[in-house]
Design a protein around this nucleic acid. Structure first.
Lengths: 211, 211
DNA sequence: GGTCGTATAGGACCAAGGTCCAATGTTCCA
DNA sequence: TGGAACATTGGACCTTGGTCCTATACGACC
């Protein structure tokens, strides 16, 4: 259940930039991996493990903004930091609207990049933790039978067993049995816990985000 | 309980810009109000009613970014749209990091501004609705006595009356009485509802945000 | 001194939740 | 075709939750 070591993925077509940034990141203890093109990165990046992406805006084949959109469309949204030589205001605004952590113009200070990477990895950690939690909940939900799901609905809606029974056209007795199994399968010790778990699934908050 | 009419607040030291933008906004049906300086705006803007702020980045006395920070520090966070003649990448990034809806460089198309205003007012509406809801909940919470609060804690933690009684060093009987009053004062018909209400207060989500 | 709000609690009583044991019928898969 | 998983139900029994009425005690406020 340990969270995997986060990785900083660097994508820049300039080999010397890749090298020097990788050296910088490794020097302060991050795990870094470099790619020369978006394709190369997208082919190699699969899992939703925590990390972040440092992306040059101008790339061969696919612009950095397109890479960002591609990632956002998928399951796992890796936080992105843009770096660019000739950034424009519209490009930076689009990047930030798309959820980028930062948008740095070259040359930038090492400190600026490192702070952005810190922030990005922090976001990634939160996302990862949240996803782990929701996955666990969903896994439990998946073990419920159709009937049990219906009963769960009623319980978290605050209905009485009797009411649920009428709605499902069965007896209160039966509801009790299903209800007991729901509590067991969902690992809930009380209705309060059950409600909280389901609420969590329905309105996923971004975790305990400061502010 | 009707939400007040949202207002677009325009702050620009150029009178002709104020006039023309106000005309544009009013032409499509928005309520607009213009200010020539941040001070003038801040002196006149009080309540947390829905609306948004269209702000020139370069302003007499106080930069647009400072106005944004001032607003963010207060209770009500009015969504901000920046407009500027000579925007820089760092300024736009800072603005967007600060939660700005958009950052437009003059000259911009009317359509761009109107789309940004739409988005900003939508955010404002959500914020407003959320705040109304939370205020109502907090108002109810405030009517609870200290003891009732303690019992509420126990109930939403999923504890049995008996357990709560032991923890508070009193009898189950008494807990039942307090519990009944808590449900009544909080306007909750079931434990599920009560838990949801308290969860809402503890982890305020940004409402039913699409995506 | 009286009243109000608050906290406490007993008795009676009913409704609701939960558990144990046992049993039946259906569907679907190997 | 036999069994596994699922949905259903009954009976018995106990625990919890919730309500009604009643009552005491303490501090604050008029």
């Amino acid at each position: 259940m340990r969270a995997p070591e986060p990785t900083v993925y660097l994508v820049d077509d300039d080999a010397s930039v890749c090298r020097s940034l990788a050296r910088l990141l490794k020097a302060v203890g991050y795990r870094a991996q470099t790619f020369r093109s978006p394709d190369e990165f997208l082919r190699n990046y699969r899992d939703g493990s925590p990390g972040c992406l440092v992306l040059d805006l101008h790339l061969p084949g696919m612009s950095g903004l397109e890479v960002q959109e591609t990632l956002a469309g998928g399951e796992q949204s890796l936080p992105v930091i843009f770096i660019t030589g000739h950034g424009t205001v519209p490009a930076s605004v689009r990047a930030m609207k798309g959820g980028a952590v930062d948008f740095l113009s070259k040359p930038f200070l090492a400190k600026e990049l490192l702070e952005a990477v810190d922030e990005a990895l922090e976001r990634s950690r939160r996302q990862y933790a949240l996803r782990q939690e929701l996955d666990a909940l969903r896994e439990r939900l998946d073990t419920l039978t159709h009937r049990e799901c219906q009963v769960l609905e009623g319980v978290v809606a605050g209905k009485l067993n009797k009411q649920i029974a009428v709605e499902l056209g069965t007896s209160e007795k039966t509801i009790k049995v299903h209800r007991g199994r729901v509590m067991e399968k969902m690992h809930a010790d009380s209705v309060a816990e059950l409600v909280r778990a389901i609420e969590r699934l329905r309105r996923p908050t971004s975790g305990a985000k400061p502010q």
